[in-house]
Design a protein around this nucleic acid. Structure first.
Lengths: 207, 207
DNA sequence: GTGGAATTCACCCTAAAGGGTGATTTTTTC
DNA sequence: GAAAAAATCACCCTTTAGGGTGAATTCCAC
């Protein structure tokens, strides 16, 4: 009998998964929480075998909650759950001890496969997620280097629409310096121009 | 008896709402679809009183589907449904004939209130949505006008890093034309330069 | 079928971006 | 304290961006 707990701030998702699982003979509904706090509160006096954990929580965020839960209760398996197929989050969840990751638009079969795979001690990714993870691993090899403190400042000001002379004035440095930082940003992030620089920066939440 | 149809590409959401509504005496489950195509197919031979419509659909997008449905079946009410609280989409849905908008993390009570309000011919926004819409209206005084088809094409290519001459080549038009579109984009969206243009575009999911 | 967007094109101009190269100084890190 | 990384400054150059202005044509809605 697998005791399943779910953490998600969307009642319809909780209800949906509950509905999908309620007729499964080897699955028992352990409980549910809509915030990280109430989840942590529940596990003080209760337990479960697997936690289906949404990464988009209102209070502290799924990734951090995942880490805390795994530290306190290493025996509980955690299955990441999200609407999105974001390589970065998947990686972070795994680094924080999750045993797998599926999308909310997965089928019932996928969900059951994942639950069984994870509670058996395995690691499971649904097809689409595996693909995203692979692409992320590939693209993150040389695509997301470290941006220095100063470069990040310059990047932020570029995104706010300031020109190099204006940025130079704000940072009390020469225009040539800002020029250098800007060119280094383009080189480091391997982008062609300002447009792609800002697109990448916003998408990767660098600003 | 209110016949409810739902369009959403997430099985758990469909199941969740179905579960929430199944014990309501005045509500009848009309059907469901996971794509815009199958939704349009359903209504050729069937009908419903209200459609709960997700705006994030894989094929043609909820906003356009909303418009098509309203054009063909003006008597069916449409209630927008989404995970996000995006003023722009809410406005577009309303412009395409929707009668209201709620978030997927709304409570059961909110959902029922919305369904009844809309099928009575009213307009309903859940609290949070109303707030977002108000903020959007305030900020969109001159900030988010309609971007034309061609402008969106140009915007997309700018975001991909192409220069005006390159874009002109791809679209088989003169460089001067692309120049015009680009300047119009800056003017319409009230931004200073490419950096702020792309930032706004990515944040508002225009590309 | 008329009016108003949308799309197209053109040329003026200046400012800004970005490629290349090289150097000094400061800060961080091992 | 030495090596590495970051931050600073400088000048070469060409291309691109963007402000202003004006106008023709095509497309769509009322």
């Amino acid at each position: 009998m697998i005791k399943v707990f779910i953490v998600d701030d969307h009642p319809v998702v909780i209800e949906g998964i509950r509905s999908l699982l309620q007729h499964e003979k080897d699955i028992e509904w352990s409980g549910q929480a809509m915030t990280a706090q109430s989840c942590l509160g529940f596990f003080v006096n209760n337990t479960a075998d697997i936690i289906l954990l949404d990464i988009n929580l209102p209070d502290i965020g799924g990734v951090e909650l995942c880490g805390q839960l795994k530290q306190k209760y290493p025996g509980i398996f955690i299955l990441g759950l999200s609407t999105f197929n974001q390589g970065l989050y998947i990686k972070k969840m795994m680094e924080n001890g999750a045993s797998g990751y599926i999308l909310k638009n997965s089928s019932k079969e996928d969900l059951l496969t994942a639950i069984h795979a994870v509670t058996d001690g395995g690691i499971y990714f649904s097809g689409e997620v595996g693909e995203a993870l692979r692409q992320y691993q590939l693209s993150s090899k040389d695509a997301i280097p470290i941006i220095s403190r100063r470069e990040k400042e310059v990047l932020t000001l570029i995104a706010e629409g300031f020109t190099n002379p204006q940025i130079a004035g704000k940072l009390y440095v020469s225009q040539f310096t800002v020029d250098s930082h800007r060119k280094n940003l383009l080189a480091k992030l391997n982008v062609k121009n300002t447009a792609t620089l800002i697109k990448l920066a916003v998408e990767h939440k660098l600003i």
